[in-house]
Computed example of a mutant assay.
Amino acid sequence: MKLAFPDDDTLSVSALTGLAAAPQRPLRIALAGYGHVGQALAARLAGDPAYRIVSILVRDTARPRAFAPPVPLTASVDHFLYPEADVLVDVLSCHKTGAALASRCLAMGVHAVSASKRAVSTRYEALTGAARAGAAKLLYGAAVGGAAPVLETVAAARQVSPVVEVAGILNGTVNYLLDRLARGCPFEAALVDARLAGFAEEDPSEDLTGADAAAKLRLIAIEAFGPEAAAGLKVETETLDAAKAAAIAASGERWVQLARLRRTAEGLEARVTLARAANVRALPALPDEWNGAAVTTEDGRVFRCLGRGAGGAPTSEAIVADLVRVRAAIAAGGA
């Protein structure tokens, strides 16, 4: 059985009638997606009495999975949403479907935790509006940085002094590729390795073009400067293609994909570029799939975070951190 994902963001609200507004323990999770991240999350939560996965939505129920699902898989949105759940966890590759599910769940008072930077960055106003309407929480720490708590670091810095700049290595796949190039590995072979390690999708264009890092920069801009200041933010990007990879390899130097967001007198300036690591003073040349960020505030302080930025395990840890926040909100008696 295969699921035909919608091309727009319309999902029947009536499909959500089974979702419960009143929380219970353990925290009941409707898990949308069961690829590398979904399976890693299921493995991470297995045996933990504080959490229970009650339904899992996938595109193809017949595809083999490395980690056996705790409940039967379904390709039907109606079946997925029928069991009562306290929180939706979105780890789908289809950002339109993820945004549609999150919007409807939030409006019905079901919390949502998303690892999809595209879903949140492209539908931010709609999702936050639905969260307000349903008095529910929308959390997306896993959408930026994986195990590197980038958004949390930006929020902490902002509490101290206004943010003036954020520099980051925000795409674990590209960092892995650039690290391999510096070690003499051919580009195509490095890409194969990244796929086998679960860092790269079959189609890695979002990573290589800088679109993935650009979407993350938009979420960082919202956290650092607010939704109004970040509205309509344009991000210049540079693509890592075979020709550029050959030039980087020939240079004999370590390069990074640098995402930079700055506040200027004219507004916000955002770029994703390929840069020599030696020229990046804010961050070290992180190994493998690691991510990191350096947040500079108006008073000259610099706040940094580092962590593994790609793969199932790091992303699942970031999701669990958001689930802990959901549990805390429920325990406090509100969203």
Score class of each variant (00 low, 15 high):
residue 189 A to Y: 04
residue 189 A to N: 08
residue 190 A to W: 08
residue 190 A to C: 09
residue 190 A to K: 06
residue 190 A to P: 06
residue 191 L to Y: 02
residue 191 L to A: 10
residue 191 L to G: 13
residue 191 L to S: 05
residue 192 V to Q: 14
residue 192 V to N: 06
residue 192 V to C: 14
residue 192 V to E: 15
residue 193 D to K: 04
residue 194 A to P: 02
residue 194 A to V: 11
residue 194 A to N: 02
residue 194 A to F: 07
residue 195 R to L: 10
residue 195 R to W: 10
residue 195 R to H: 12
residue 195 R to Q: 15
residue 195 R to S: 11
residue 196 L to G: 13
residue 196 L to H: 12
residue 196 L to E: 15
residue 196 L to N: 13
residue 197 A to Y: 06
residue 197 A to C: 13
residue 197 A to P: 05
residue 198 G to W: 05
residue 198 G to Q: 04
residue 198 G to C: 09
residue 198 G to T: 09
residue 199 F to R: 06
residue 199 F to A: 07
residue 199 F to N: 04
residue 199 F to W: 12
residue 200 A to Y: 12
residue 200 A to D: 08
residue 200 A to C: 13
residue 201 E to C: 00
residue 201 E to V: 00
residue 202 E to W: 09
residue 202 E to S: 14
residue 203 D to L: 14
residue 203 D to N: 15
residue 204 P to R: 01
residue 204 P to L: 10
residue 204 P to I: 03
residue 204 P to M: 10
residue 204 P to W: 07
residue 204 P to E: 05
residue 205 S to M: 14
residue 205 S to G: 11
residue 206 E to M: 13
residue 206 E to T: 11
residue 206 E to P: 06
residue 206 E to Y: 01
residue 207 D to P: 00
residue 207 D to S: 15
residue 207 D to L: 03
residue 207 D to A: 15
residue 208 L to C: 12
residue 208 L to Y: 12
residue 208 L to Q: 09
residue 208 L to T: 08
residue 208 L to G: 08
residue 209 T to W: 08
residue 209 T to H: 09
residue 209 T to I: 09
residue 210 G to D: 03
residue 210 G to Q: 04
residue 210 G to Y: 11
residue 210 G to T: 01
residue 210 G to R: 02
residue 210 G to K: 03
residue 210 G to L: 08
residue 210 G to H: 09
residue 211 A to N: 03
residue 211 A to C: 04
residue 211 A to W: 00
residue 212 D to S: 15
residue 212 D to Q: 04
residue 212 D to T: 15
residue 212 D to G: 00
residue 212 D to Y: 12
residue 213 A to Q: 01
residue 213 A to K: 03
residue 214 A to I: 00
residue 214 A to D: 01
residue 214 A to V: 03
residue 215 A to F: 05
residue 215 A to V: 01
residue 216 K to V: 11
residue 216 K to T: 10
residue 216 K to I: 11
residue 217 L to C: 03
residue 217 L to Q: 04
residue 217 L to P: 02
residue 217 L to T: 08
residue 218 R to T: 06
residue 218 R to I: 05
residue 218 R to W: 03
residue 218 R to Y: 05
residue 218 R to K: 12
residue 219 L to H: 05
residue 219 L to A: 03
residue 219 L to C: 01
residue 219 L to I: 10
residue 220 I to M: 06
residue 220 I to Q: 01
residue 220 I to A: 02
residue 220 I to S: 07
residue 220 I to T: 10
residue 221 A to M: 08
residue 222 I to W: 13
residue 222 I to A: 09
residue 222 I to P: 01
residue 223 E to R: 13
residue 223 E to I: 09
residue 224 A to M: 07
residue 224 A to E: 05
residue 224 A to K: 08
residue 224 A to S: 05
residue 225 F to S: 07
residue 225 F to V: 11
residue 225 F to L: 09
residue 225 F to A: 06
residue 226 G to V: 15
residue 226 G to Y: 14
residue 226 G to N: 12
residue 226 G to W: 14
residue 227 P to C: 06
residue 227 P to M: 11
residue 227 P to Y: 10
